[in-house]
């Protein structure tokens, strides 16, 4: 078990460096901020939802590689999905990190599984979950 194999895999580093979803959506219909006070990570999450479908998702802010990679993957995985689907992806992701459950993500979002190694590093789990917890808050507000 090495940090490079578990955490700093190429796929995670790519998502960390990616600027695709790292932006603000001025016309977002849902928006929330999330922070991890102990490490200073601080993100804003933006969703554009039309007719129950997430047509755009983005995040902005500061965070470590794990935090940002996870946020980028989150945004990618939500594109074109319904609120209901978003809820089940969220559940799957949190279960993967917190409950050791075996993830069953659709093929086009199986990159999310790359985050699995984070569960071996307890202090980093909260980095990986920041964007997802923020999403949870957003979805809880949607009927």
């Amino acid at each position: 078990m090495s940090l490079e194999a578990d955490l700093y895999q190429e796929i995670i580093l790519e998502n960390y460096r990616s600027k695709k979803n790292r932006r603000r959506i001025e016309s977002a219909t849902l928006q929330a901020e999330g922070a991890n006070p102990s490490c200073g990570d601080d993100l804003e999450l933006f969703l554009s939802v039309h007719d129950g479908i997430i047509v755009d998702a983005a995040y902005d802010g500061v965070g470590c590689s794990i935090c940002c990679a996870s946020a980028n993957l989150l945004c990618d995985s939500l594109h074109g999905r319904s609120i209901g689907e978003a809820r089940s992806i969220l559940e799957g992701f949190k279960g993967m990190l917190l409950e050791d459950s075996v993830p069953e993500f659709a093929d086009d979002i199986s990159d999310l599984e790359a985050m699995q190694g984070v569960k071996h590093y307890p202090v980093r789990i909260k980095c990986a979950l920041l964007a997802w917890n923020t999403l949870e808050g957003l979805l809880d507000g949607v009927q």
Binding site: L3, L7, Y8, C39, D41, V62, G63, C64, Y121, R124
Partner: peptide, 12 residues
């Protein structure tokens, strides 16, 4: 490099 990432690799 974010300090958190630097610290995690130094820990190794």
């Amino acid at each position: 490099v974010h300090p958190h990432d630097a610290g995690a690799l130094l820990d190794q």
